[in-house]
Amino acid sequence: MTVFMVRRLMQSVVVLLVMSVIVFLGVFAIGNPVDILISPDADQLERERAIRALGLDRPLWEQYFVFLANAAKGDLGRSFVFNEPALRLIFERMPATLELAGTAVVLSLVVGIPLGLYAGLKPQAATSKGIMAGSIVGFSLPTFWQGLMFIMVFAVMLGWLPSTGRGQIGTFLGIRSSLFTLDGLAHVILPAVNLALGNAALIIRLTRAGVRETLLQDYIKFARAKGLSHRRVVGVHVLRNILIPLVTVVGLEIAGLIAFAVVTESIFAWPGMGKLIIDSINQLDRPVMVAYLMMIVLLFIVINLIVDVLYSVIDPRVRLQDVKG
């Protein structure tokens, strides 16, 4: 187990390095940040001065090694646009995103698993067909379209919920979050539902597929024959068996929700990390992009690690040395 973890961590460092190289090359390919950032009134000399001030006049490899040297000291650079350390900007935005993603994941699990179970256990029922058809709608609408519709219906027409933004922040057990105030909750509902819909649909479908298949397995038949209650068969044996694909996908989706809720955060003016990264990409704010993506790689690595460990917990047939990769 320890060996497994240590090896994973060492691999992660390599992945982080590769990521930073790609981002450096990527930004270089897209364009020169100074062309985006500089005032149109600035002349050539001013432009060259700004390029020097940001260190962009040096060869790319040199810029990269300067970055590495600083990164080794824990400094991932300073935003071109905000003139603040990139890491500070990211951590500042993190709570808002975690609130939104957390709410969305809980919503999609709470809605998705029961509906999926139902549709899987009673595949021929009209309700099940309705659930399945509905779930298709859930992921076929583009999020930007769906988000604006939510705003139109619930904020503009009905006036039940606020249209955009993050609500008041409350403190509970020393944690500051907008989830602790009524105003904050009202603000998070629409964007969270908007994020959750697509995932709920996917979870419904995976659960149903898993259940349908598991019910036919010998050990379920055996459990039934043994006289175990229906509730126990479903609750323990069936659920456990469908968890593997579910855990994988949910793991990926959580990470995806945290990292790239870009469209939802833009439409709902939610001041989270997704908004930060799209703004940074649009302004070629390389230090923020690099720092952000390195954090996200770390996040995915950790989540995938957890998922792999969960595999062996859920299904003893998978042993950790199998997933040491």
Partner: peptide, 24 residues
């Protein structure tokens, strides 16, 4: 190991950035 770390890398790379780089 190689393939799965590539997966990690890929999953954490935003679609928007990939599309923008390809576009450029």
């Amino acid at each position: 190991t190689l393939i799965m770390r590539l997966v990690d890398l890929q999953l954490s790379f935003p679609t928007i950035l990939i599309a923008l780089i390809l576009l450029a």
